[in-house]
């Protein structure tokens, strides 16, 4: 059974259409990378799918009550909010009714390399550490589906890779992750599927090798890329911008 189905999801801000008839189905085992330039509609798609903003069309998650939705999906917003100087372990345990010794909480802390920081005040941590705490909170919710808005932003390279490996591990366990990403290299290497969104429309959807072509990257991102199949998998390295003159 699919974990998320959206059909013709459309969001308008006044006369402007920020999401245009987006239809998407996510199955267990998938790690979907949502890529596209700034303002393309990645966050809008995720938030509309969750039912956090009003949208036309259908989304399977938006139909659920808030209690049902909390069991079906975990959401990691882009805004990294920690309002009070609470302990890291407590913040993560909010996903499990404040049981700090719950196995889901301990596992999430370990997965995000936070066990040593568990007793620190969350607001006293660096930006990257706070980001890992918030990812751990979403993991601790232990849902079949995880939606994450730019989860790797602000992380150091090792923790970016660890985060992507965690997500692909979750997918291999029979769950699913949908994450908006800006790092095409990470997306190409770790995601099982990429969905490209451009000016509010889904313009490509498939395995990274099929989606990431020179033509698409030039069309959507206006960049030139080095794309190659290396021994360790697909390698995508942006090389430069394409200006109007080149085109």
């Amino acid at each position: 059974m699919s974990l998320l189905t959206t059909h013709n999801l459309t969001v308008r801000h006044g006369a402007r259409v920020t999401l245009n008839h987006a239809s998407l189905t996510v199955e267990p085992g998938e790690f979907v990378g949502l890529i596209g330039p700034n303002g393309a509609g990645k966050s809008t798609l995720l938030r509309a799918a969750l039912g956090l903003i009003t949208a036309e069309g259908d989304s399977s998650l938006a139909k659920l009550s808030s209690a049902q939705r909390a069991k079906a999906v975990a959401w990691l917003p882009q805004a990294r909010e920690i309002a009070w100087p609470v302990r890291v372990a407590h913040l993560v345990s909010l996903a499990q009714n404040e049981r700090e010794d719950a196995p889901e909480v301990l596992a999430a802390l370990a997965r995000m390399d936070l066990t040593a920081l568990a007793d620190r005040k969350a607001t006293g941590l660096s930006g990257g550490e706070q980001a890992r705490v918030l990812i751990a909170r979403a993991l601790a919710q232990d849902t079949p589906l995880l939606l994450a808005d730019e989860p790797t932003a602000g992380l150091d390279p090792a923790h970016q890779i660890a985060c992507m490996e965690t997500f692909s591990g979750i997918a291999k366990d029979g769950r699913a992750v949908v994450a908006s990403l800006h790092d095409l290299g990470l997306a190409a290497r770790h995601c099982t599927r990429l969905v490209v969104i451009h000016a509010g429309r889904i313009v490509a959807d498939g395995p990274p090798r099929h989606v990431l072509t020179e033509a698409l990257l030039s069309e959507v991102f206006s960049i030139r890329c080095y794309i190659s199949d290396a021994a360790e998998g697909l390698v995508v390295q942006p090389l430069g911008q394409i200006t109007q003159d080149d085109a």
Binding site: S66, E81, I82, A83, W84, V86, L94, E98
Partner: peptide
């Protein structure tokens, strides 16, 4: 307690 994580996170953690 859940609003510590912001309105959207709280909403998706089952808070109406």
């Amino acid at each position: 307690d859940r609003l510590t994580l912001g309105e959207e996170a709280a909403a998706t953690m089952g808070i109406n």
